[in-house]
Design a protein around this nucleic acid. Structure first.
Lengths: 187, 187
DNA sequence: GATAAAGTGTGACCTAAATCACGTCAGTGG
DNA sequence: CCACTGACGTGATTTAGGTCACACTTTATC
């Protein structure tokens, strides 16, 4: 179970058994049930979560009550409200579980201390953050330059494994289109 | 001129004079004229640029020939094609100068070596990347949840200094709306 | 195993924004 | 000083996608 985290880190920096145990010692384990919230708008965001099992989503509720999915996170993904977590502000997003889930979570203080104890972890986090940036930029360009169908096809291609676990309603909300429009696309 | 870079770094990590000279030694200075390209689609992306003077933009040309502005960069901002630069791929974006410009630029190898020579710089880059992530996520939510007018007003509010230096055509292209629609907004 | 709650498809209609097509004006460069 | 280019506004028309309203099916839940 912890191997999944180790494997991800080792794709970027090698770790001895001892070092990995050290890494782990900064994390806690959380178990959550479907529909459970782990971050709620207007409340603090103490943790970033590494998903070990299950499926979560972060979403924004706009003034008119519509929800917009910013991110999904299944096994091997990280999730939090970045703005709240890194700037120490209250959440603007909600995060809840689409399936029963288990995560390793860490506070910002612990993350920073981990980087002091094991400096190569800072490089790991920098690489992850960089990869996140690239993905976000591509999503922006996709929103600006592609129509609904093209975005849907791109999503299928990028996340073939995710799509099987998601109702189309949620995919639509991620793509920024209505449920009905998506329904009409998949003939 | 170099003070602008020093001030930005020192907002995150303190530097001695010696350390700052060390930092600088990894950068080169580039001067560019209005309309000049510093990154071109389908070619390598050797540098990330810190803008010291002037104004640049990165944009994506889609299949139909429409251009979509991903980012502006004026003094005190960083700019590159992230995907090309960090993954060592050819550019998918173009970057050109909207005004005569001057930058400090650095290769990925030099950045990494700088972080070895002065580890706190890695923390600096991590913080910058994190801030970038937050901004990108907010932009995505804005694209998904706001209409043209709301996005325009938000832009004015976020970048009051930028807007004075930009023709509305380019602002429209950044916001993902047509020139004409933007024109009709500002009554 | 009954009842409720999600998920999905589809028709009818509406609307924000794109597109096309002008005209005007300012700046720039030969 | 003239010609060209880019910026900007504005009308007329089109269109992708949103919204509303139903029906039907599948999945949870007590």
């Amino acid at each position: 179970m912890q191997e999944i985290l180790r494997r991800q880190i080792e794709k970027i920096v090698p770790l001895t058994d001892y070092e990995f145990q050290l890494v782990l010692s900064y994390f806690s384990i959380g178990k959550y049930k479907k529909h459970q919230y782990i971050v709620q708008q207007e409340t603090p965001v103490p943790y970033v979560h590494f998903v070990v099992k299950g499926l979560l989503r972060s979403f924004y509720l706009d003034q008119s009550g519509k929800s917009h999915i910013l991110q999904f996170a299944m096994e091997d993904w990280w999730i939090t409200d970045n703005q709240g977590f890194y700037k120490g502000e209250n959440a603007t997003l909600n995060i809840d579980c689409l399936e029963d889930a288990q995560t390793y979570y860490i506070t910002l203080e612990n993350r920073d201390q981990l980087c002091v104890a094991l400096p190569k972890m800072e490089f790991f986090f920098l690489q992850k953050m960089t990869a996140g940036n690239i993905a976000l930029q591509n999503r922006i360009l996709s929103l600006m330059s592609k129509n609904s169908e093209e975005r849907y096809l791109q999503f299928i291609q990028l996340y073939p494994d995710l799509i099987q676990r998601l109702p189309k309603t949620l995919v639509a909300s991620y793509l920024g289109i209505s449920r009905e429009t998506l329904s009409r696309l998949s003939h």
